[in-house]
Design a protein around this nucleic acid. Structure first.
Lengths: 103, 103
DNA sequence: CTAACCTACAACCGAATGGTTGTAGATAGC
DNA sequence: GCTATCTACAACCATTCGGTTGTAGGTTAG
């Protein structure tokens, strides 16, 4: 999933399909690369669960799955939590009045 | 930066160095791969600014830079914000009482 | 029906990744 | 001083990635 977000084009696709659905060909028109290349990017996002497709006539409409974004976000929140607990421990050590050095 | 977090070993390294410093060799002992491979992973994290090194004797101590994690997190928060504004627009449309259809 | 359009998928290519081994330079411990 | 340890870096290899082109199948518009 982080891998899916590691590419700038794919992050841009996600920002576009968050507010509304886009067809694959409409997306392809936005980037200086072939239709097939954009199609592959969408496929990567889809495999990561960040995006899903819905058939509408001859078009394939792409929309975002915000829950997947939230899952990625929670990993980073976890990092933040680990960091905070370290800070707390560090604070305790500073506050600790030389415990254990006395007989 | 997302690229740096896209590898499981690198994410694990980050979780280890968040609470405390680790030497590169100590990290290398934790994974079923060569020292050089772990060294490369640390280099990737360092290039992404997620981690920094500090010399201590013959060891190189690795520590996390939480601000970089926060920067990655803010990208995801931005996604969340776009999503929310879409939800608001959607809510407005539902609340709208057939505006404009009257002469 | 036919032409235009949207999509899927395979084959290919150069560059980057993630791994290896090997060599060499500092530093610490005895 | 010698040796073991920690690190840096280069060279190499298989795989993956991001891109291309080309072919084929559905679907819509006229």
């Amino acid at each position: 999933m982080f891998h899916a977000l590691a590419d700038a084009t794919r992050r841009d696709i996600v920002t576009r399909v968050l507010p509304r659905e886009w067809s694959v060909s409409a997306l392809a028109r936005e980037y200086p690369m072939s239709f097939a290349a954009v199609q592959k990017h969408v496929a990567v996002l889809e495999r990561a669960g960040l995006v899903s497709k819905r058939r509408h006539g001859r078009e394939q409409l792409v929309r975002a799955d915000i829950d997947a974004v939230r899952r990625a976000s929670s990993v980073l929140d976890h990092f933040e939590a680990i960091w905070r607990s370290r800070m707390e421990r560090f604070g305790e050590l500073l506050a600790e009045p030389e415990k254990g050095t006395d007989p």
